[in-house]
Design a protein around this nucleic acid. Structure first.
Length: 727
DNA sequence: AGCACGCCGACT
DNA sequence: GTCGGCGTGCTC
């Protein structure tokens, strides 16, 4: 009897056995549709054998095995297995949640042949003169133009040009203008000039390229503007020359288009796909299949892309590796960066972690020699120097609505010189608090233990944690006094103040509220680049990765709040963020100045920032962490739990703690309520476990996880968070 | 996660 | 007497 073992998306960490007479060992990694209770589910075949522990009468037969697409490769199944074990999350859920939605259905995928393959313009196609096509044949002209621009077009791209192209393409295929054959041509485009490398860059490229055939974790540490992207491009080129795929992981969606454009411009003749959250189900599946078949040579994507099957993977790049969005913060709490390293090791290929401000974990590994460390000391463009950073002591310089006199003066001067400036304040809305002046009342969220943020623009109070909105009250609900007022500054208020102060200036606010609209980002970037804006006001959305060539002045408000935070990672994050924002100034042809308003101008973090001295600060922070016994000197895990009442949560955590059998190597702390106690109507708490040995921590967690699963979990939702980065 | 089974309160 | 509340436990 042939037994197949299937991983299903159910929250129990076991495989389910089924009878399947027609299965063979080639079917491992394929999808199978099976009866499950009263339901029908589709899962992945993990093993095939002739034996089972399940009583024969319980054993059911598979409905069918889907063979229309290739099985998931063993290396990817290894990654899932590791992920499931390391993060203590059921294997079936790990696998099924990583797959495109269309592969989770109880249906075979059906894609039209034309939809499956990208088309490449052949040399004879390239020689076609557009004017030989009648002008009224607009679709044909558009399509040919697009092909001659891009050489390769995916099915989606073609569909976007016009939905009625299939007849045309059949004809063109017959004529030999286009072909489905993926090319292995790697010569970069002749039209985009390729910059010469600095000595630093050249050295980095040579060093990594020399070891392209084996696993290494490279930390590529270079200040903003030191030209990391160019290094990525060269490495990808090397990978391409061996006909290998490159997986490029990037933090979040906003900077994708920019990076994508750079990559496409350089590699016009290879298929590049972008796997981001904005895709619909069909687009995602199409890209996924192209990656699996090895047709897509460059796979650009956010954290989920780390699970893409890649038959010819030769290189992984994790850009902005310090970015916390590589860690998923709900459900399966995985770190895409760490999984990328695991994947590279298993595939025996290099993984390059790039950052201007590496995470302390990576830096620690680099100086210890666990990672290979590559340092880019200089900015690539000689004209672009590092910005000068100065502090405005807000104890001396009083401010009006959060803006100090020296900063306003600097803005004025910048305006007069027709340069752009940027005010960075990481707080959207008008004001963070609504206060009653006669009693102590302030507007609170009903579902979270947080204050409601004033959004004067739409006359609403908003909770930035749960999204709750309510109308602006006319009077204090507690004492009836009408004297209620916004307190503190947010982007909207800064915008208002600056508009009043510089009525002639063109001011643009950039935060989640102003970029929510579709295409808003595109329009904003266009406005900035064509110099239709004088002053930008923005949150951290602005900090990431964009080049603003005319930007000369950066003003930073309200940075102090993270200086003395209870979160031991706050300084690290603040520094990275301020480095990033500062780096916006003075990129191309303009000298950059950064003015930071602070009450603590002598703080070591600010000193380090002023000197552009990552190392001194990193060393200091590492010393602190060593003394305090924090990561990277210890490994941590959290048991997180939530319920309607904190009593239930704490009680559950206490029970869980009671079950634990810690060894000497494991430290188990008392349960503590979360910083933000209530979130979306749930009260939360966690329990910290730590150890100096990752291995022992894992052994402990595995056993403990099994034990916790036996607890009655009435109304409690819980997860293990391994290597947590938020508390 | 679903979904059924099961054992106690308020209804035609 | 039953309808239905959601606590408990199983799914190959």
């Amino acid at each position: 009897m042939v037994i197949i073992r299937i991983a299903l998306s159910v929250p129990v960490d076991i495989l389910f056995d089924y009878q399947a007479e027609d299965a063979s060992s080639h079917d491992i990694g394929l999808r199978a549709c099976v009866p499950f209770g009263k339901k029908k589910l589709t899962g992945i075949i993990m093993a095939i054998g002739t034996e089972t522990q399940v009583p024969i009468e319980k054993l059911k037969s598979v409905y069918c095995i889907f063979r229309e697409i290739n099985p998931l490769p063993p290396a990817l199944l290894d990654l899932f297995q590791f992920c499931s074990q390391y993060y203590h999350h059921p294997l079936g859920m790990v696998i099924m949640n990583s797959l495109p939605v269309l592969l989770r259905n109880n249906k075979p995928v059906k894609l039209k042949d034309s939809a499956q393959h990208p088309l490449r313009l052949t040399d004879s196609g390239r020689r076609i003169d557009i004017t030989t096509i009648p002008a009224r044949n607009r679709v044909a002209r558009r399509l040919l133009t697009e092909f001659q621009n891009a050489t390769i077009l995916t099915a989606q791209q073609i569909k976007q040009i016009s939905p009625r192209t299939s007849k045309l393409l059949i004809e063109w295929k017959r004529l030999g203008w286009v072909t489905e054959k993926p090319t292995i041509e790697t010569s970069p485009s002749k039209t985009t000039p390729i910059p010469t490398l600095t000595a630093d860059q050249a050295n980095a490229v040579t060093t990594v390229t020399a070891e392209l055939e084996r696993f290494n974790t490279w930390l590529l540490h270079g200040v903003t503007g030191s030209g990391k992207t160019e290094i990525y491009l060269r490495l990808i080129e090397s990978a391409l020359s061996h006909d290998k795929q490159t997986l490029v992981l990037i933090p979040e969606i906003n900077l994708t288009p920019q990076l994508e454009a750079v990559f496409r411009a350089r590699f016009r003749t290879v298929l590049l796909i972008n796997l981001h959250s904005g895709l619909n189900d069909t687009q995602r599946l199409t890209g996924w299949l192209q990656a699996q078949r090895g047709e897509a040579k460059i796979i650009l994507g956010t954290r989920l892309a780390v699970f893409t099957p890649l038959s010819r993977l030769g290189l992984i790049i994790v850009d902005e590796e310090h970015d916390s969005s590589f860690k998923q913060q709900d459900g399966l709490r995985y770190s895409a960066r760490d999984l990328a390293i695991f994947r590279a090791r298993k595939t025996n290929i290099p993984v390059v972690l790039g950052s201007a401000t590496p995470s302390l974990e990576s830096y620690f590994n680099a100086i210890n020699g666990r990672y290979r460390y590559i340092r880019l000391a200089s900015r690539a463009m000689q004209s672009a120097r590092l910005p000068s950073i100065q502090y405005i002591d807000t104890r001396i310089h009083k401010s009006q609505a959060g803006l100090s006199e020296p900063l306003l003066k600097a803005l004025e001067k910048c305006l007069a010189n027709k340069y752009q400036s940027l005010i960075f304040i990481n707080r959207r809305g008008y004001a963070p608090v609504l206060l009653c002046k006669s009693c102590t009342w302030s507007a609170l969220c009903q579902r979270c233990s947080s204050r409601l943020v004033v959004h004067l623009r739409d006359k609403k109070l908003c909770c930035h944690h749960c999204g709750h909105e309510e109308n602006f009250p006319r009077a204090c609900p507690q004492c009836g006094n009408q004297d209620i007022a916004p307190f503190g500054q947010g982007t909207q208020r800064v915008e208002e103040t600056l508009r009043a102060h510089f009525p002639a200036a063109r001011i643009l606010r950039i935060d989640r509220d102003s970029t929510r609209r579709k295409n808003a980002w595109k329009e904003i970037l266009h406005a900035i680049h064509t110099h239709q804006v004088d002053i930008l006001i923005g949150t951290q959305l602005l900090a990431k990765g964009h080049d603003f060539p005319n930007l000369s002045l950066v003003g930073i408000l309200n940075a102090d709040t993270s200086l003395y935070s209870t979160d031991f990672r706050a300084s690290e994050r603040l520094f990275a963020q301020l480095m990033q924002v500062s780096g916006r100034a003075g990129r191309a042809n303009v000298a950059g100045h950064v003015l930071i308003q602070t009450e603590f101008p002598d703080h070591p973090l600010y000193h380090a920032l002023q000197q552009h001295d990552y190392d001194t600060l990193a060393q200091a922070l590492l010393t602190e962490r060593k003394i305090a016994g924090f990561p990277p000197y210890v490994y941590q895990a959290l048991l997180r739990a939530e319920a309607h009442s904190i009593k239930i949560v704490l009680n559950f955590l206490k029970q869980a703690a009671h079950l634990a059998e810690p060894t000497q190597a494991i430290e188990l702390y008392d349960p503590v309520p979360a910083q933000l106690l209530r979130l979306k109507g749930m009260e939360r708490a966690y329990l910290l476990i730590q150890s100096t040995s990752r291995k022992q921590l894992q052994t402990f967690l595995a056993e403990w996880y099994r034990q916790i699963n036996t607890l009655p979990t009435r109304q409690v939702r819980w997860v293990l968070d391994v290597d947590p980065i938020e508390f």
